[in-house]
Each structure stands twice: as structure tokens, then as C-alpha cells.
Write a protein that binds this DNA or RNA. Structure first.
Lengths: 162, 162
DNA sequence: ATTCTTGCAAAGCCTTTGCAACTGC
DNA sequence: GCAGTTGCAAAGGCTTTGCAAGAAT
């Protein structure tokens, strides 16, 4: 996590519980779901389903693939997680308690860097207005090479010039 | 296509031929590849592999799935096509001869609207500078509801107020 | 002739799903 | 006890790939 958290009154676990029982729904909050929520909100920055499953298994937590996928979908629906489509793979990151931001993705090492820029909201507003579009969300990913990879790739001679 | 084309000196076909033989490569330009390039650059705005295959078959052009996928990858590599990751599906759009732009995607009807805004380049510049990042490209997709779908969903009473 | 491309079908990857056993409420 | 959840393994999409036959240069 690089950005400052947003202050929230409920714990992720409570928020999820609330979601599960809101409206006409009567979904259950199971032990496995509780483990997932706790694990995700104490450990991960952004991750994909497979990484979550193996990390939880490594932490001796019981988790089956099917349940992991099913619960991830619920967590997104509940507003706890945000889906992050990097290339063609789906990653997840904290949504609840974490500010809106965008991403720089390094094509060499795969690292993902978060950044914030209010200009982007402005661009969305302008484009929406121009096309009578009602925006609901966005995905903005800048691909390139991060500072570390850039230095590593640079021949020594060029480094001297900095 | 909604935006004004960029003037290019070579035909897409010639540019692809050039790519195939540039450097140490000695790749062949086959009839099927030629059909694909011609078809894509005369018909499609943006499309996915399956749509291309069935559209070409409907036009009585011979095309096998494997070759379509292989050639699409080459066309991206050659700079003729740009990959457009919408959600978790891969679409393609013209890159050569077509200006840089971004997308509004309607979550109701699936329509994709192109827009241009120089502010976005500025945002990329700022974020890259702040993180020592060397940007190579980006993907910016705004999800929401397009004008038509918005009107269709609106009760008659509210329409009267417009 | 040589080397690359094609086409089929099989395999890969990620994700969803049918169904019987199980469990939270 | 009822309705929702789990877990397995199978199936679903989309994309890649091994290999023998075919085509471009």
C-alpha cells in the first residue's frame, strides 16, 4: 500500500456481514469467508485468485478454489474489493478504506505502482459530457518501465551521465 | 470509426510485408494473411478474434482459428493493430493510420465510444515523472451508460423534463 | 530445396457450475 | 429444518501449441 488509507467506521468484516444480509438477501457468513476477509485485509495489496489461494494455504487456512472464486465475486459486489484487469488477467485490490487511484505497471518486473491525479476525473467528466455518457467507473493503466528496471537495463556509461 | 484518420504513406498490407522481412526475420506473407489484413482494414472498427473469424467465413474467406490468432499477434507486433482489453476479453482495433484515443464502454449495450483528450497525456507525464517511470503506452476505459441506453431506461415522465 | 505457415485437435489457463454433502441461522 | 454454502471434478471460454502436410521464396 502506498497511499494513505481512508477512514472508515466499520471493519471490512462488518461491512461484508452487512452486505450479506441487506435487502431481501439472506446470505450466510461462513468461517471460510471470514478467513478470506481477514486475510485479504491484513495481507494483500493486490493479488489474483491463485495467489490468494496458495498464500492462504501456506498460512494453513482452509480454502477451496471454488469458494475462493465465489467469495471474491461477493467481495467485489459488496464494495470491499475492486477488480483490476491487468492485461488479460484479473487482479483484486482493496476498495473499502482505500482511495481511488490508478496504476503504473512495469512490463519488465510486473510491479504495479499506484498514483493519484485529479486531472483524470476531469478528463472523464469532459468526455462523458461530450458524449452524453453517464460514467460509473474507470480503469486506467499506464504500461512502461519502472525506475529500478530502467537503471538495471542502462549500460554503465549512461549511468555516469546522470 | 469516429475519429479522423491519420495520413500514412504505406498501405497496411505493405507495412505488414515490411515488418515480416525486417531485420533478421524472414517470415512469409501468405494469402491468408493478406486476406486478413485487407478484411480488417476495410471492415472493422474493433473486434475480437471470434468475431473476425466468423465475419471472414461469412464473407467466404478461408481462415482457420489457429492462423487467425497467430496472425493477430503478428499484426499487433507489427504495429498495425492495438490490443484493447475490455474487462477480461481481448479486442483489437486499428493502430496504423488511426490516432491515439481512449474509450467509453457502455455496460448496458456493450457499445464502445472513442474519445480524445490531451489531458490524459498530461496525466501520464506527471505520474511518470513523479515515479521515475518510463511510459510506453496506456489503457484507459471509462465504464458507464451511453446516451441511448440512458434514455431507454428513463421512465417517460422524466423524459418529458428534458 | 529449404524453411516457414497452416490446420487439426489436444492441451493450457482461468473461471464458473452441477450436484451431493454439509452448515449457519 | 430450511436455505444457503462448500468441494469436487467436470465443463466452459478463449488462446496457444505439437506435429504432419502444404506453401512461399
Amino acid at each position: 500500500m502506498n497511499l494513505q488509507s481512508v477512514i472508515v467506521s466499520q471493519s471490512p468484516e462488518d461491512k461484508f456481514r452487512e452486505y450479506l444480509t441487506t435487502g431481501n438477501k439472506s446470505q450466510r457468513f461462513t468461517g471460510q469467508q471470514r478467513d478470506m476477509v481477514r486475510f485479504i485485509f491484513s495481507h494483500h495489496d493486490h493479488f489474483d485468485a491463485e495467489a490468494l489461494i496458495s498464500d492462504m494455504q501456506a498460512a494453513s487456512l482452509k480454502i477451496s478454489r471454488a469458494t475462493a472464486y465465489r467469495t471474491l465475486n461477493k467481495l467485489v459486489d459488496a464494495g470491499l474489493l475492486r477488480r483490476l484487469e491487468l492485461g488479460t488477467r484479473t487482479f483484486y485490490e482493496h476498495d473499502y478504506g482505500y482511495p481511488q487511484h490508478d496504476h503504473l505497471q512495469c512490463t519488465k518486473c510486473g510491479k504495479v505502482i499506484e498514483f493519484q491525479n485529479p486531472i483524470i476525473e476531469e478528463a472523464i467528466k469532459q468526455a462523458s459530457l461530450a458524449h452524453g455518457f453517464q460514467s460509473e467507473g474507470h480503469s486506467f493503466i499506464v504500461r512502461g518501465v519502472c525506475k529500478e528496471c530502467n537503471i538495471a537495463r542502462m549500460p554503465k556509461r549512461q549511468l555516469d551521465l546522470i
